[in-house]
Design a protein around this nucleic acid. Structure first.
Lengths: 225, 225
DNA sequence: GTGTGCCTTCAGCTCGCGTTCAGGTGCGGT
DNA sequence: ACCGCACCTGAACGCGAGCTGAAGGCACAC
């Protein structure tokens, strides 16, 4: 779970980062609207926590800009205002949920989970690449009619490749998405898991769906398999 | 699209009426549980927005009463932040969705549409997964012809799994839905209850309807049992 | 008070999974 | 032809997710 926190209050931002990381989120932080917008564009987050009041461009504008760019990353808006329900009127910037500061941390985490889950639900139910079929919700994979058992990591990796089917994805991109943005350790782990996958989804079927692009990364293609 | 709003806060009810009408809904408003119940009985709505805290009879009772009367109109329950959840025993009141106040208007509309859409395709009185059958209203469960006695928690858990049959649900999702959004305590409780359930609905029948998906959660499936 | 049933906590255990490592292989560059 | 680097391979290891049995605590009935 990757989360972007955009808040100019250093102390709050820091608290959020630490707390969310403790909850198992991978957290990026931006301290103003420009940085936040840039990070949101460059990366793919599961959710964005966005403070309304920001130096430079404010939360509304960040949100509206992203939506205008067809970026549907779930956004949880933080507002210091009282009068809570006033937000109801005319607040259609495209945020998925609102929270009034101060709010309790468990509440924020719960809402964040709800919001990102809802975003996830709107993604395609099934992924298909050639005769390879995977169901992210059920966490199941088939090659033709044969179901294949994968471990959690193997599944995450395959799902990531499938979402970028036909494209080359670098080892770094894979580490960021399947492991953690700040993964430290031997990148060889990717090769190891690619091998596991090939042994399960390719070799038994005489296929080569996962191709190595030397010096660039890997590509999942329907051709060759 | 006819919608009934039941809320005793005049200002909020007014805001909702105007907003929803602007969205093209036909809106009726009731300011207490008795009126709400009466309107819900007399008319046929596509959805009901129901505040939990009401003078006289509360939202929970309204919901339970309607369900007891086999009225399956989709219900979107509104709760104030924190605390009120505690009063909702087992969280299985028969409401179709919950929303915590304050919430954004777009969110409310989206959820309302989702809920009424779900209701549109003939809400099943009973949940069926393979030869497992459960009646949420009566809180009874059968495997084939044999009725199985479950405790409140066991039933809530099974009902939640059944509503997401075929999909993997994480331990966290289960805690949020069956226990509380801000449940604190040993998540091991989920494993314990899964075990209880298996001992009652699977083992005696030589089935494995509840599958463990290591690193991801649990899945209730018709296959495998 | 006594008893019963349910919810929750805890500690011990097991095995699968994730990760690391130490070679091995082959492609690309010069 | 040679070399270096990127990638492949097989095995080994440590850990932690999930399973289990038991016991404590609480509410409710009698």
């Amino acid at each position: 779970m990757r989360v972007l926190v955009v808040d100019d209050e250093q102390r709050l931002a820091r608290t959020l980062r630490l707390g969310l990381e403790a909850e198992g989120f991978a957290v990026d932080v931006a301290h103003d609207g420009v940085d936040g917008l840039w990070l949101a564009r460059e990366n793919s987050y599961d959710a964005i926590v966005l403070d309304l009041m920001l130096p430079g461009i404010n939360g509304y504008q960040v949100c509206a800009t992203l939506r205008a760019e067809k970026n549907w990353t779930p956004i949880l808006m933080l507002t210091a205002k009282d009068g809570e329900w006033d937000q109801v009127e005319g607040l259609d910037t495209g945020a998925d949920d609102y929270l009034t500061k101060p709010c309790s941390f468990p509440v924020l985490v719960a809402r964040l989970r709800a919001v990102s889950r809802r975003g996830a639900r709107e993604r395609p139910t099934q992924l298909e690449v050639g005769d390879l079929r995977l169901d992210p919700a059920a966490r199941r994979v088939w090659r033709g009619d044969a179901e294949i058992g994968l471990t959690a990591r193997e599944f995450s990796l395959l799902a990531f490749l499938a979402r970028h089917a036909g494209d080359v994805v670098s080892k770094r991109q894979i580490l960021d998405a399947v492991w953690d943005v700040d993964f430290v350790g031997d990148p060889n782990i990717v090769e190891v898991y690619v091998r596991h996958l090939r042994n399960k989804i390719d070799r038994p079927f005489g296929r080569t769906a996962i191709q190595t692009v030397r010096g660039a990364g890997y590509r999942l293609g329907s051709d060759g398999g």
